[in-house]
Simulated assay, not measured.
Amino acid sequence: MVTNPLDYVDQLGKAGASGFTFHVEVSKDNWQELVNRIKSKGMKPGVALKPGTPVEEVYPLLEGENPVEMVLVMTVEPGFGGQKFMPDMMDKVRTLREKYPTLDIEVDGGLGPSTIDIAAAAGANCIVAGSSVFGAPEPAQVISLLRTSVNKACRA
């Protein structure tokens, strides 16, 4: 999370990033300019939502003239890895999935073998997993399990 994401768009675009996700909490005054700049650099714009922020905060970014293409629901407070998954954040995921059936919905924080089914069933189709993968004796097995769970839920 950065306080002025507009300062990073050009650099990440030049570096070859395919997407750029910014926090709604720091972009209320310039989100449309930010989305336009992200798209002009060939990247897919996404917006992140901290646990304490109501899901309705992202609606204008999804329904505007030039909408974001992904919402990241933080399932922990941003800042450091290894935090415990907040299952109550799945209400936000379910709300977004019902309102925007084709939207990419990403979840980040505390995702692993014991929480992936909850997130996938709620409607998350993109997963960020750090500690559960990099701390595993067999990271490839964890990745496979996460992928299988999300794919299974998406087909249901």
Score class of each variant (00 low, 15 high):
73 V>A: 06
46 G>W: 07
71 V>E: 00
49 L>T: 04
103 L>W: 00
52 G>V: 06
70 M>R: 07
62 L>G: 05
54 P>R: 14
41 K>R: 15
50 K>D: 12
69 E>V: 06
65 E>M: 13
53 T>R: 02
92 K>F: 01
75 T>A: 00
104 D>C: 04
80 F>C: 05
81 G>E: 13
57 E>W: 13
75 T>W: 00
81 G>S: 15
82 G>F: 09
99 K>S: 10
78 P>M: 01
87 P>T: 08
46 G>F: 09
86 M>Q: 09
104 D>T: 14
98 E>Y: 13
45 P>V: 07
62 L>T: 13
85 F>R: 07
48 A>P: 05
54 P>F: 11
69 E>S: 14
42 G>E: 11
64 G>A: 12
99 K>H: 06
86 M>G: 10
88 D>W: 15
101 P>V: 03
39 K>H: 06
71 V>H: 03
94 R>L: 00
96 L>C: 09
68 V>E: 02
55 V>P: 05
90 M>K: 04
96 L>I: 06
73 V>M: 10
68 V>H: 06
99 K>I: 06
84 K>L: 14
77 E>Q: 12
101 P>G: 04
80 F>Q: 08
108 D>Q: 06
97 R>S: 04
67 P>K: 11
104 D>H: 10
98 E>K: 15
99 K>N: 00
84 K>H: 14
108 D>P: 02
81 G>M: 08
82 G>Q: 04
78 P>D: 01
77 E>D: 14
48 A>I: 02
108 D>N: 11
67 P>T: 11
59 Y>L: 02
83 Q>R: 01
39 K>R: 14
62 L>A: 08
57 E>I: 11
70 M>H: 10
47 V>E: 07
50 K>E: 03
58 V>E: 05
78 P>I: 01
41 K>Q: 15
95 T>D: 11
59 Y>H: 09
106 E>N: 05
62 L>F: 13
67 P>D: 10
63 E>Y: 05
62 L>K: 01
45 P>S: 08
64 G>E: 09
49 L>G: 00
56 E>K: 14
48 A>D: 10
52 G>H: 02
70 M>Y: 00
78 P>C: 03
64 G>M: 09
99 K>L: 02
82 G>A: 02
57 E>T: 15
103 L>E: 00
81 G>P: 07
43 M>G: 03
73 V>W: 01
107 V>N: 00
47 V>L: 03
65 E>I: 13
72 L>Y: 09
95 T>P: 04
42 G>T: 11
106 E>D: 10
97 R>D: 00
